[in-house]
Amino acid sequence: MEVKGQLNNVSAPAEHLLEERIKIKPANKAAIVIGLTLTVLSLLTVYAFYSFDYKEFDMTEALIATFANLKVIFLEPHLEHFSFGHALYQVLVTLGLAFLTTLFGAVVAVFFGLLAAENLSSKRVSMIIKGMVAFIRAVPTVLWVLIFAVAAGLGSTAAVIGMTFHSIGYLIKAYSESFEELDRGVIEALQASGANWWQIVFQAVIPSSITYMISWTFLRFEINFAVAVAMGAAAGAGGIGYDMFMASSFYLDMREIGAITYFILAVAIILELFAIRIKNKLKAA
């Protein structure tokens, strides 16, 4: 009897809702703030376009010229200042830069990732490492390369150190989060049988998170490839990026830029296909 009375009480306040319109998302502070922000941003965008100083600039003419350039780049690519073999070699150099920095980063990040995972280390150590990592990641890779260029000089050395540095920061975060996914109970079970920290790490933590680790590492490899192209131009680290820089700002050869772009695109697609295959293999295993 008592229970039934309580049930009636519970359903009473909900009943009046049925008569009015039912909102699925009640208006709260967060929703209002987001709405206002978006409105202000769109108004500012419209105003900005309106208030640009276009001078003698003709929009249609400019668009046509841009498309003409794009046509030259992508439909009439050719290699003038170097051969196909050279381009292939330079792509390999860029891939090498990406591979080396990812490898260095991964090795260092495994160790610090373990210390950064809250379930494997103390709260304080984890906080310190995560704080430092957040700082490292907040500064873009290019900037790190330029910072290290002060000591190492502009070139491949600075590029390797700077890219490794940022990769470490990125991978520590990714790894430590995959480590933290592991059920606390598994660690407890091994601790209860007298296993020590290293044994638990290698027998339970890493086997459980190896798929995440591999897919994160590969993602970083793809990022590092893109960064390595940019580094070839910006930091003189060599590789296909440097040739692109030469083609665009030295020879002003748009057709060659097109050819190089296709090279990079092809490599990126191959990497992507490779990544998909690895992921499928890991899922099946």
Partner: peptide, 24 residues
């Protein structure tokens, strides 16, 4: 440990009596 085999999981009980390296 879900990703490991039954026998590997069973042998985990022995880790406490092994050296760190052999366990790793």
């Amino acid at each position: 440990v879900n990703r490991l085999s039954v026998i590997e999981n069973t042998l985990h009980g022995k880790l406490g009596t092994k050296s760190t390296m052999a366990g790793v």
